[in-house]
Structures are given as C-alpha cells and as structure tokens.
Nucleic acid binder design. Structure first.
Length: 588
DNA sequence: GCCGTTTTCGGCCCGACTGTTTTCAGTCG
C-alpha cells in the first residue's frame, strides 16, 4: 500500500471519528499522522519490510504504528471497515460540501438518512433541511450553491493554468490609485503544484483607496460571480471556476496577515506553538507579548504589547527564527532548521546555467534548432541539450539513426553560427517495453547526453514496470531519467513503479532524475524530489520545451525544486559545464 | 492519540463569520 493510500485511510478514519463525535484532539492526531505519512520520503511499506520502528515517524505513536502495520499487511484498516458499517462513507462526502461540517453531516444522516451529496441536494431542493437543528431558509440556499461549486470544482487547478489568470488580476489591482501593495498569499505563494483558491492581500492608503481596490476587484472582467463584498473582505468566482478572496488592510498588520494567509496551516500552528513557548502570542494581526491566556475575558487581539507585525521578516526574527521562504512553509522540519540558523539557500532561476531537455522541428517541436538555440542564448544559458524523440514515438516523428545523422549535419552548421552557447547533442530515447533502449549502442555512445523516458505500456504491473525502468537506467550510456512517474496533473496518475528501487538503480549508475517543469507534469512531485535528494541523486530541471515560449516554463520547475529544499548543489543544470561533462562521462 | 529545556499527565493555534441565536455552536481558513 502506497504512502498516499495509507494517508487516505487515516484521513477517512479521522472523518468518521469526527462524525461520531470523538475527542477532537484524537481526530487531529490522526490527521497529523495522515499528513506526515503523505509527505514521508520513505515508503512505509519498505520500512515495515525492513522491520523499522514506525513510532520514530513524527506524529506516529504506538496506536497509529499498529494500524499502519495492519494496513501494510492486509491492505485495509480493520477499525475503518468496522466504523464504516456504522456510518456510511458517503457521509464523509457530504462533509466535503462547504458549510457542511461533521456536526451537520451527522445530523443530516441521522435525521434524514442523507448519505451522499446527491441526497443532500434533493433534500435541500425539497426544503427538508429545515428539519435540522440550526437550519433555516438561508442556510438551505447556501448549501445548494455550495453543492454546485463542489461539483464544478472537485479538483484543484494546476498552478501553471492559474498563473496566466492571476498575474493580470494582480497587475490590475496594483494599478489602482492608493493601492500601496497587492500580494498573493496562500498555496499559490507557496507554489504548490495545484491550487484550490486564491488569497489576495492589499494595503490601501486610505478608505477611498480601499473602496477603489474593492470596486476594481469585483468589477474585474474575468469575474463570473461576486460571492460577497464588504469593506475589508470580498470574494468572487472567476470564469474558470477559481474562487478568489481579497482582504484590504492597513500597512501596520500586513506582515502578520501575509504570514497567516500564506500558511501552510501546519506551519502556522507550529509557529504559534513556538510563540507560546517564548511567552508570546501570534495572530493574523501581529506578534504580541503574553500568551493571551491570562487576560480574563480580554480579546487576545488587544491583550499584550505589540512586538512585531509589519513584515514577515521581523516576526520570524522576534521568534528567534531565520526567515523561511514560502515554498518551505509546510512544517516538514523547516522550523527546527530555522531555529538553528541552518536553512538551505534554495536554488533560484538565476542559478540555472542551462536547460537539458527540449525538442525541435526534427521531432514534435514547433521551433527549429536555430530558434531554440537563440532563445537559450537570450535566456542567458551557458549550455543546452537538444533532445528530440526517438523512433518508437512515431507520432512525434521520432528520429532513427539515419535521421539523427542528418540532424547532426544541421547541428554542425547551427553551432558554427551561434558561438554564444555550448550545445550538448542529446536525445530523449524511449524505454521499450522490455527495458531496452530505442537507439543503437553505437549512437548512444556518440551522444553527449542520453535522456530516457517511458511513453508507452503504462499498464504494466509494479514489478514489471520497475524492472523495465531499472534495466533502462542501468545501461552505461544513460544520464537522466525523465518524468519518472509519467503522471499528468489532474488527468492521469503515474504508472505503478517502485521509485525507491528506481532511485537506488539511478544512484548506482550515476544517473540523474529529472524534475520535468512542464505545467502538465511537474514530475517528480515535491515529495518525490525530497526522496531523490535524500537518496543523494542529482536532479535535472528540464522544461521539455516544444516551443520557444515553453522554455520559460523553467520557473515552475524551480518552484517545485524549492519546495523540495534543493540548492544549486543538487541541480545538475545549475552546475558549470565542465562539472556537467564530468557527470555525463561517469568518470570515464 | 501524540508528546515532553514545565517528560508519563495534562495539555493540544487562533480569530472571524454565519445563521441563528438571546449567548452560541458550527464552520472556515
């Protein structure tokens, strides 16, 4: 059972416990464990096989360790199956509708036998929800609207799809007179691969400016529906289904608000804990003296002297912490390092010296070799690898040995015309079904860089797929394993593969793994890049560009790399050319 | 259920909003 499945079982169990009315701290314990397991770079299954002590995993104690072992052994969680006899799993689905928490979902199920979103909708339309405690006309209408939103937007949107929509919106708000600052917070700022909604924060010079910013926001052309609009807070839904919230505030508390709304929630909880340990109190308004517990009846917001609030930097500083980059704020151990002053210096776009994965019109790219080359020079790269497809991908016009020879004649000319950059002659070679490669050994040896990829036979069993890829990366001429899981965000799960085993093989053979920066892929995921880093692998951030414009997709790859704490030392294409050449030569 | 520079019990992040209340529970971020 994969870590993701284990986490989902724990999460589902927590849902049912919550509906049952269990102790909320117990529920939180299960949710914390679920999140930790989901983020864990090591496979729990492998840990169990090795006889490791699972209670060494943070948030996992004796009880949850036993449950994990049971799930690994039997493929199911007995307590979950048992509880789902009592409470239908559909009730947890009802809980996913905004406005329906555990208490209301439970009441709806007990009173009205509602155990699915469909049932909930039917009951709301028939006006039957009024029978529930605390349910009036208004709430019934709200729930109906929220069911619609739930159906429309069950899945989070890809960050690469959202960027082109949000950038102009932010620009429009920044252009409003009296808008002193407009920033995006939330998971968008943390650069998560998918985003559920957008949080915008703005500083207005005065009340008139605040009103103008709000007016510009709710009147923005892409707005489909205004969900709510007040003096300090407004909310809209854009035409693509994305919900966007705007908060307008004074400069005084902007840092505290930015910190709070950037999250993650887990990072915030951990930060507040640190504040309490220091006799301080952190809220979205600022960092205050006192823990807020002593002032009987006094609002924590007003109790205690303000210590810091204008900038995130000063809040971290007063907490005795280094500034934590937004991409790292996931409570994955960053605060312990920040306390010791040992946070890594994350890789940036400026650190990159080249792009090692791109296509041209020789296969399925839209730009010529010369155009791609000039574009790479414009982007300040010292080197680039041209890596068209191999012949197995007939639909892309992949190259066989003879066509590759002709391509090289053109490369000779283009290289002579563009002395500003070093061209690495490469190919993205298909891994065939049996793990052999789609190019002759003779040509594999002649290439400067060999990328290998799976583009077919996604349905192989875990064992077959793993063995196939291990065989491929064990070929002495292979340098980079591309998009190692084959996933397409929001469209296709990756194929079944034991990444630990594949990473071991890459390590043994001097092969780097790719972080494919395409907004559709972002493969490896942040968690898997962390696993690769911990395994000591080099990571190549490649755009897989099929056009000049797609070369700019590199930023998304950088974002993902930063979420995995990569520094320039970890990234192959952030290394100087001679070092890259040594890596490609594998000491030969 | 987890956790421990207040270690094996007694805590566990915080504030706002909403609809429905007449003092608040539930939900959300």
């Amino acid at each position: 059972m994969s870590n993701a499945e284990l986490a989902r079982h724990l999460e589902l169990f927590a849902d049912l416990l919550e509906i049952e009315g269990e102790n909320r701290f117990k529920i939180r314990a299960y949710r914390n464990a679920a999140r930790t397991i989901y983020d864990l770079p090591e496979q729990v299954e492998a840990m169990v096989a090795d006889g490791a002590d699972l209670t060494q995993i943070p948030s996992v104690g004796k009880e949850i360790a036993e449950k994990l072992e049971a799930m690994v052994a039997t493929g199911e969680l007995p307590q979950l199956s048992e509880l789902s006899q009592k409470i239908p799993l559909g009730v947890t689905e009802v809980m996913r509708v905004k406005g329906m928490g555990p208490k209301l979902a439970e009441a709806a199920w007990r009173e009205l036998a509602i155990d699915s979103v469909d049932e909930l909708e039917r009951a709301a339309k028939a006006g039957k929800l009024g029978a529930l405690p605390g349910f009036g006309e208004k709430r019934q209408a709200t729930i109906l609207k929220n069911i619609e939103a739930y159906r429309k937007n069950v899945e989070r949107l890809r960050i690469g799809d959202i960027d082109p929509v949000i950038a102009p919106l932010v620009a429009a708000l920044r252009a409003v007179e009296g808008a002193e600052r407009v920033e995006v917070a939330g998971s968008y700022r943390r650069r998560r691969e998918t985003v559920g909604d957008i949080d915008l924060l703005a500083i207005a010079a005065d009340d008139a400016a605040a009103a103008a910013i709000t007016a510009a926001f709710v009147g923005y052309p892409e707005v489909d529906e205004v969900l709510g609009s007040g003096d300090t807070r407004s909310s809209v839904r854009l035409r693509n289904g994305l919900e966007v919230d705007l908060r307008v505030m004074e400069a005084e508390s902007f840092g505290a608000a930015l910190l709070y709304f950037t999250g993650s929630k887990a990072h915030n909880v951990a930060l507040r804990q640190i504040a309490l340990e220091r006799g301080l109190h952190l809220t979205e308004y600022g960092l205050f003296e006192g823990t807020g517990a002593e002032g009987e009846g006094a609002s924590p917001k007003s109790s205690g002297k303000l210590v810091a609030s204008r900038t995130e930097e000063e809040i971290y500083e007063k907490l005795g912490l280094q500034y934590v980059e937004p991409e790292m704020r996931e409570d994955r151990g960053e605060l312990a390092l920040a306390a010791k002053g040992q946070l890594p210096t994350l890789v940036t776009l400026a650190d990159l010296r080249g792009d090692l994965h791109m296509h041209s019109t020789w296969s399925d790219g839209k730009a010529s070799v010369a155009e791609m080359m000039r574009a790479c020079i414009e982007r300040g790269y010292e080197y680039m690898a041209l890596t068209d497809h191999s012949k197995a991908l007939a639909m892309t016009g992949g190259l066989d040995e003879e066509k590759l020879a002709r391509q090289w004649e053109e490369l000779d000319r283009v290289v002579a015309e563009n002395p500003g950059i070093t061209l690495l002659r490469g190919m993205e070679v298909d891994i065939l079904k049996d793990g052999s490669l789609d190019l002759s050994d003779e040509w594999l040896e002649r290439l400067d860089i060999v990328l290998v990829s799976v583009h077919s036979h996604f349905g192989l069993s875990l064992e077959e797929q793993t063995a196939r890829i291990v065989k491929a990366v064990s070929h002495p001429e292979v340098n980079v394993l591309c998009h190692p899981t084959g996933r397409i965000l929001g469209a296709r799960e990756g194929y079944a593969v034991d990444l630990q085993e594949v990473f071991d093989a890459c390590h043994a053979n001097g092969v780097a793994v790719e972080l494919n920066a395409s907004y559709m892929r972002l493969d490896l995921s942040d968690v898997n890049v962390i696993a690769a880093r911990k395994r000591g692998l080099m990571v190549s951030i490649g755009t897989d560009a099929h056009s000049v414009k797609e070369l700019d997709g590199m930023q998304l790859g950088i974002d993902q790399a930063r979420r995995a704490w990569l520094t320039p030392e970890h990234v192959l294409n952030a290394r100087p050319l001679d070092e890259v050449r040594r890596f490609l030569a594998k000491g030969r």
